[in-house]
Measured scan of single mutants.
Amino acid sequence: KRPMNAFMVWSKIERRKIMEQSPDMHNAEISKRLGKRWKMLKDSEKIPFIREAERLRLKHMADYPDYK
């Protein structure tokens, strides 16, 4: 399994928030909203998620050195 990228790290957190607020919303609609919101974020707002994704990538490389 591949490590999460910055969007996936961010969307995992945000998806929970949306599901708590709107439990009946369909997954496809949540995904569309998340995509739009991610694109609207400033680069500076994405930095913590980019850093976390990089940390996960490095950990994945250490844990699975033969992964292609």
Results as ranks from 00 to 15, higher is better:
residue 30 I to C: 07
residue 6 A to K: 02
residue 44 S to Y: 12
residue 46 K to M: 01
residue 17 K to R: 08
residue 14 E to N: 07
residue 47 I to V: 11
residue 3 P to I: 08
residue 68 K to S: 11
residue 59 K to W: 07
residue 1 K to I: 12
residue 11 S to N: 06
residue 5 N to Q: 01
residue 14 E to D: 01
residue 27 N to K: 09
residue 45 E to K: 03
residue 46 K to N: 01
residue 5 N to R: 01
residue 43 D to S: 07
residue 12 K to F: 08
residue 1 K to E: 15
residue 25 M to K: 04
residue 41 L to S: 04
residue 43 D to P: 13
residue 27 N to M: 07
residue 25 M to E: 02
residue 8 M to S: 13
residue 6 A to I: 00
residue 47 I to R: 09
residue 67 Y to D: 15
residue 52 E to D: 05
residue 9 V to M: 04
residue 66 D to A: 09
residue 22 S to W: 12
residue 45 E to Q: 08
residue 17 K to A: 05
residue 52 E to R: 02
residue 22 S to D: 13
residue 33 R to S: 12
residue 65 P to H: 03
residue 15 R to M: 10
residue 61 M to A: 14
residue 55 R to M: 05
residue 30 I to T: 02
residue 46 K to P: 01
residue 34 L to Y: 01
residue 57 R to Q: 11
residue 6 A to M: 01
residue 42 K to Y: 05
residue 16 R to W: 00
residue 35 G to A: 14
residue 3 P to C: 05
residue 56 L to A: 06
residue 67 Y to K: 12
residue 10 W to V: 01
residue 57 R to L: 07
residue 35 G to L: 14
residue 25 M to D: 02
residue 15 R to W: 05
residue 13 I to H: 10
residue 17 K to S: 05
residue 36 K to M: 12
residue 22 S to Q: 11
residue 11 S to M: 06
residue 27 N to D: 15
residue 8 M to Y: 11
residue 60 H to L: 08
residue 53 A to F: 03
residue 10 W to G: 01
residue 29 E to A: 05
residue 10 W to A: 04
residue 7 F to E: 03
residue 29 E to F: 00
residue 16 R to S: 10
residue 9 V to W: 06
residue 61 M to S: 13
residue 13 I to V: 10
residue 8 M to C: 10
residue 12 K to R: 11
residue 32 K to F: 07
residue 18 I to Q: 01
residue 47 I to C: 04
residue 67 Y to S: 14
residue 23 P to E: 05
residue 29 E to Y: 00
residue 23 P to V: 04
residue 57 R to Y: 08
residue 36 K to V: 13
residue 60 H to N: 13
residue 25 M to L: 11
residue 57 R to M: 11
residue 6 A to T: 02
residue 68 K to H: 13
residue 8 M to E: 15
residue 3 P to Y: 11
residue 53 A to E: 03
residue 14 E to Q: 08
residue 55 R to C: 06
residue 50 I to R: 12
residue 3 P to T: 11
residue 55 R to F: 07
residue 41 L to H: 00
residue 31 S to V: 11
residue 36 K to E: 15
residue 14 E to K: 00
residue 37 R to H: 10
residue 56 L to Y: 06
residue 6 A to H: 04
residue 60 H to D: 14
residue 3 P to H: 11
residue 67 Y to M: 15
residue 28 A to K: 08
residue 61 M to Q: 13
residue 42 K to S: 13
residue 59 K to S: 12
residue 52 E to T: 06
residue 40 M to N: 12
residue 17 K to M: 04
residue 10 W to D: 01
residue 20 E to I: 04
residue 18 I to Y: 07
residue 34 L to Q: 03
residue 40 M to G: 10
residue 9 V to G: 03
residue 61 M to C: 14
residue 3 P to Q: 14
residue 27 N to F: 10
residue 9 V to C: 05
residue 46 K to V: 03
residue 10 W to M: 07
residue 36 K to S: 13
residue 20 E to K: 04
residue 16 R to V: 12
residue 2 R to Q: 13
residue 20 E to Q: 01
residue 3 P to G: 12
residue 50 I to N: 07
residue 43 D to F: 12
residue 36 K to P: 01
residue 58 L to S: 12
residue 2 R to H: 13
residue 20 E to P: 01
residue 45 E to Y: 06
residue 42 K to D: 08
residue 12 K to S: 13
residue 6 A to L: 03
residue 18 I to D: 02
residue 14 E to P: 02
residue 17 K to L: 06
residue 16 R to I: 12
residue 13 I to E: 11
residue 15 R to D: 00
residue 30 I to V: 13
residue 42 K to G: 09
residue 15 R to V: 06
residue 39 K to D: 12
residue 14 E to L: 00
residue 46 K to G: 03
residue 42 K to A: 11
residue 17 K to Q: 09
residue 51 R to A: 11
residue 15 R to E: 14
residue 42 K to T: 14
residue 19 M to R: 08
residue 49 F to T: 04
residue 29 E to P: 01
residue 7 F to C: 04
residue 23 P to R: 02
residue 34 L to M: 04
residue 34 L to F: 03
residue 12 K to V: 13
residue 45 E to S: 01
residue 16 R to H: 12
residue 68 K to F: 14
residue 11 S to F: 05
residue 54 E to P: 00
residue 66 D to S: 07
residue 53 A to D: 00
residue 37 R to M: 11
residue 55 R to E: 12
residue 18 I to T: 01
residue 54 E to F: 02
residue 5 N to C: 07
residue 48 P to E: 06
residue 59 K to Q: 12
residue 36 K to R: 12
residue 10 W to K: 03
residue 13 I to A: 10
residue 12 K to Q: 12
residue 10 W to S: 00
residue 27 N to P: 15
residue 49 F to C: 00
residue 56 L to G: 06
residue 21 Q to T: 10
residue 49 F to H: 02
residue 17 K to T: 05
residue 32 K to I: 10
residue 44 S to P: 02
residue 19 M to L: 13
residue 50 I to E: 15
residue 38 W to T: 00
residue 41 L to N: 01
residue 54 E to G: 02
residue 31 S to E: 15
residue 9 V to T: 02
residue 60 H to C: 12
residue 16 R to Y: 06
residue 11 S to I: 00
residue 21 Q to L: 07
residue 58 L to D: 14
residue 31 S to A: 14
residue 55 R to P: 01
residue 43 D to L: 11
residue 36 K to G: 09
residue 24 D to G: 11
residue 55 R to S: 10
residue 53 A to G: 00
residue 55 R to L: 08
residue 47 I to T: 12
residue 35 G to H: 15
residue 59 K to E: 13
residue 10 W to Y: 06
residue 16 R to D: 12
residue 44 S to K: 05
residue 30 I to F: 02
residue 40 M to C: 09
residue 3 P to K: 12
residue 53 A to I: 02
residue 65 P to R: 05
residue 19 M to T: 11
residue 54 E to R: 02
residue 49 F to L: 02
residue 45 E to A: 06
residue 32 K to E: 15
residue 50 I to W: 05
residue 60 H to W: 04
residue 41 L to K: 03
residue 21 Q to S: 09
residue 61 M to I: 13
residue 20 E to G: 04
residue 31 S to W: 07
residue 55 R to K: 09
residue 42 K to V: 06
residue 8 M to N: 10
residue 58 L to W: 09
residue 20 E to F: 05
residue 25 M to N: 06
residue 17 K to H: 05
residue 25 M to Q: 01
residue 39 K to Y: 03
residue 51 R to W: 11
residue 31 S to I: 11
residue 19 M to Q: 09
residue 67 Y to F: 11
residue 38 W to M: 02
residue 24 D to Y: 07
residue 21 Q to R: 08
residue 59 K to C: 11
residue 44 S to W: 12
residue 2 R to F: 13
residue 16 R to Q: 15
residue 53 A to H: 02
residue 21 Q to H: 09
residue 17 K to F: 05
residue 51 R to F: 06
residue 64 Y to H: 15
residue 32 K to G: 08
residue 33 R to E: 15
residue 54 E to L: 04
residue 21 Q to C: 07
residue 58 L to A: 14
residue 40 M to K: 15
residue 34 L to G: 04
residue 54 E to C: 06
residue 8 M to R: 08
residue 66 D to I: 06
residue 67 Y to L: 14
residue 23 P to L: 07
residue 23 P to D: 02
residue 9 V to E: 13
residue 50 I to L: 10
residue 7 F to I: 01
residue 68 K to G: 10
residue 62 A to M: 09
residue 55 R to T: 13
residue 37 R to T: 15
residue 35 G to Y: 14
residue 23 P to S: 05
residue 2 R to G: 13
residue 49 F to Q: 02
residue 24 D to R: 05
residue 2 R to K: 12
residue 12 K to W: 01
residue 4 M to N: 07
residue 55 R to D: 10
residue 18 I to N: 03
residue 42 K to I: 05
residue 34 L to V: 05
residue 29 E to N: 02
residue 48 P to R: 04
residue 49 F to I: 03
residue 66 D to V: 04
residue 61 M to T: 13
residue 57 R to F: 06
residue 42 K to W: 02
residue 36 K to D: 15
residue 30 I to L: 09
residue 9 V to R: 00
residue 3 P to V: 07
residue 48 P to V: 08
